[in-house]
Computed example of a mutant assay.
Amino acid sequence: MPKITDQVSDSGIYLLEIIAPDDFYTAIKKYEGRKFPKGFYYYAGSAQKNLRKRIERHLKKSKNIYWHIDYITSRFDINKIFIFNNEGKDFECDLVAELLEHFGLISTAPGFGNSDCNRCDSHLLYSERQLDYNHFISRYHPIVRFIPSSSETF
Rank of each mutant, 00 (worst) to 15 (best):
R129L: 09
I106G: 01
I106V: 15
K49Q: 09
S107K: 09
V8T: 10
I4M: 12
T26V: 13
A44H: 02
I55G: 05
K60R: 15
N114V: 05
S127Y: 04
L100E: 12
S9G: 14
I137G: 01
L100H: 02
K53A: 09
S107L: 05
I69K: 09
G104A: 09
L15Y: 04
S46L: 03
K30R: 15
P110Q: 04
D90I: 10
I81P: 09
E92I: 05
S74A: 08
S115R: 06
E17T: 14
F103C: 06
S115I: 02
R75G: 00
F40V: 13
L125T: 07
Y31H: 10
V96G: 01
W67P: 05
E101P: 00
P110V: 08
R34D: 05
F24H: 08
N64T: 14
H102V: 03
L105P: 09
D94L: 10
R75P: 01
Y25H: 12
F136N: 08
Y14D: 07
I78S: 05
N85L: 07
I78Y: 01
A97T: 08
R34W: 11
K29W: 07
I65G: 02
S122W: 00
A109C: 09
G113C: 08
D132I: 08
L51N: 03
T73K: 07
